[in-house]
Amino acid sequence: MTSGGIRRSFTAWAALALALFGGAAQANPHPYQLNMQRGVSTWSQVPYDLNNISLGVCVVIGILVFGAMFIAMFRFRKSRGAVAEKWSHNTMLEIVWTTVPVIILIVLAYLATGGITSWSDTTGSQMTVKVTGYQWKWRYDYVDYLGKPISKVGFMSKLDTLSDQTRQLGSGMDPYKVMTGDENTYLLNVDKPLVVPVDTKIRFVITGADVIHSWWVPALGWKLDAIPGIINAAWTNITVPGTYRGQCAELCGQDHGFMPIVVVAKSKADFAKWLAEQEAQSAAPAAAPAAASTAAAPASAQTAAAPATAK
């Protein structure tokens, strides 16, 4: 093999390895992506590692079992003159293949239990955001940040206009032309994203207004159902600033596929600036009430959001 060939094959393997175990560089889906992403939060490594470990375990067991099957299929063919044996029992083997899986399962269960425990611990959060699922958009209400309550920062977040026009039946528009920068954001972009700070433990309280939705940003490592009448809690602590895209993950009616989620993680300083702007904006219409309180948030949504925003 020439050195060029070696280099090429190395590049191919590297590309495959990147596709399989691609890290934080690829926080949003990309063509021919083969494996789960590592994510960008302090916890998102947990499902990623579990995924890789359990996949590895399955591949090894698969090679052993299927390997034995294929050997059997070649060695014990009637056409090769194989004569059937009579045995149908082997205590030793049966004990082995009952206990070995149990041991493997205990290891996996141990790892997963640790992950659940850390995920369930929403205490000590520095910020709270309320997420409400509507048919077919999301509402975000900022409840508190660094111990101080935030009032009147909340907005609806729905599919961006360009995606919405393109996705209409017979629109004649090309999904490949829905770009944000050099990234295709067809069906993965919104008019107003959720903005959060990095390196902050953010508690999300998630509920639904009409039917069940599910709030999912793969880069954060989890999804949680938004159920009317129930308030679920989860947390994240994003380590890398960036834009992270997700979608509703529970069938919620005709436009279930068209209510994406976009989370923009900013540095703490940028976030403080953004938050101050938002607070100023919501204070301004309060001076002239009739003006445009509907622009930021429809009145109905405001009422629906009221109970959880309190206290």
Binding site: N28, P29, H30, Q33, M36, N184, W216, L251, H256, G257
Partner: peptide, 22 residues
């Protein structure tokens, strides 16, 4: 399998172009 790992939800009639190949 790959589509799911890359983040494509089920029961959706349309999807981002990143999921197009598979």
């Amino acid at each position: 399998h790959f589509l799911g790992l890359a983040g494509m939800p089920r029961r959706i009639p349309d999807y981002n172009v990143a999921f197009a190949n598979f």
